[in-house]
Design a protein around this nucleic acid. Structure first.
Lengths: 230, 230
DNA sequence: ACCTGAACACCGTTCAAGT
DNA sequence: ACCTGAACACCGTTCAAGT
């Protein structure tokens, strides 16, 4: 935030206006997201940050979705693929990798939702896929099942993070969740016997407890479900 | 589209401007979505359709997300909860219910994506939850696992539909998918040994085949994974 | 080749004012 | 109570024109 003595006449308190590049745009976008949230990372707002007009960005980025995917790819560098305390079996370590992924998404509201739509395809994403495949292999999961299972695991992790972060983000979303909870609790037993029978169990547990069970269930299903139908 | 003889001086070829109600707004929204797609169901466009200003809608609908959730709830009436040819076991019937749900979402691009964020809580949604719980109960899935499993099943079904319909909708999304496919195929074996080992298997199968396996895997995981950690 | 001004065609949401 | 005109504060994307 201090002015640069080497460029005395810069009009703004910004690093000298660097040439526009894909990398420069993405790193500015990440900074902007960190400070103002993904919802402010628009082509117009980002262009303003880079001291140019929105049209200039289209030379490097095809559209807003691609921009958001590039941000996610950059953030994925923070996923811990080999947790230090990882002395448990493969299942335990896989749980931690997925947990680390969810944490990264959860730390940036909005990112998970965009990740459900536009998946990245950079080296960090590949490393995450490779890490998961390695653990499934170590666990003796047949290749064909691991190949499809990695997708499900990432999908569930992403969707779970999206749901949680949407709720954490907006008080309206929280109200909606409370409404759903109330509706489930009050469902008449005559029309909805199973909902009534399960009662609070449908909405029980902390997010962490639900995460842990969900991941274990999907990992188990992946390991035990053959690809060919019997 | 014909003029109404009983209301000779109506200025437009619309059914007489009915009083604004929640139900009327939602049914107009559904019609609008069916004809122009969810992306056109905006507060402004919908108000125009109802011959009023956008501000008027806020008396009945809190925001755009809630409007989209109400549309989904209405559409959920089309889910087949007791497939006619359903003579298979509980697993087979559950697969069909989930398949019907995916079809409904898939028929309306954009809806699945919004469903990941704003879940409805009306009678159609409850009936779907009840139907799934009933089948899990029939299959001997312990209550505690069924209670959490229903959420995972719906989440996976929704996320799967969202991914597919995003791709079917926009050619850009399809390009991105091709890009990811190419990246996976070309991943160097030195850095990504498991990705290289699995090769085309990572992206193999039709959407239907992947759906079928994914649902079976999640159903199996739900049935076999106890809620308490060992 | 790269960059951009200006325009096109939209958005959600609020609020003071009307009936 | 219900409805609305008008405004506030934005959007994505394109394209002809400039350097």
């Amino acid at each position: 935030m201090t002015s640069q003595p080497s460029t005395p006449r810069s009009r703004r308190e910004r690093p000298a206006k660097s040439a526009l590049t894909h990398a420069g745009i993405v790193s500015t976008a990440v900074r902007l997201m960190e400070s103002e949230g993904l919802q402010r990372v628009t082509m117009r707002r980002l262009a303003q940050e880079l001291d140019t007009g929105p049209a200039s960005l289209y030379v490097y980025v095809a559209n807003t979705a691609e921009l958001h995917a590039a941000i996610l790819e950059a953030l994925l560098g923070a996923v811990d693929l080999a947790p230090v305390g990882a002395r448990g079996d493969w299942r335990e370590r896989l749980l931690r990798v997925l947990g680390s992924y969810v944490e990264v998404l959860f730390a940036h509201p909005g990112l998970a939702r965009s990740a459900l739509v536009a998946r990245p395809s950079g080296p960090h994403y590949l490393a995450l896929v490779e890490g998961i495949l390695g653990l499934l292999h170590e666990g003796g999961v047949p290749d064909a099942q691991a190949a499809w299972g990695v997708d499900v695991l990432l999908q569930v992790a992403t969707a779970t993070a999206a749901e949680q972060s949407t709720r954490a983000q907006s008080p309206t979303a929280d109200d909606e969740h409370d409404a759903l909870t109330a509706v489930l609790r009050e469902a008449p037993a005559g029309v909805y016997p199973r909902i009534a029978a399960l009662g609070d169990d449908l909405v029980s547990g902390t997010p962490e407890q639900r995460f842990a069970w969900i991941f274990r269930a999907v990992i188990n299903g992946t390991k035990t479900t053959p690809r060919e139908t019997s």
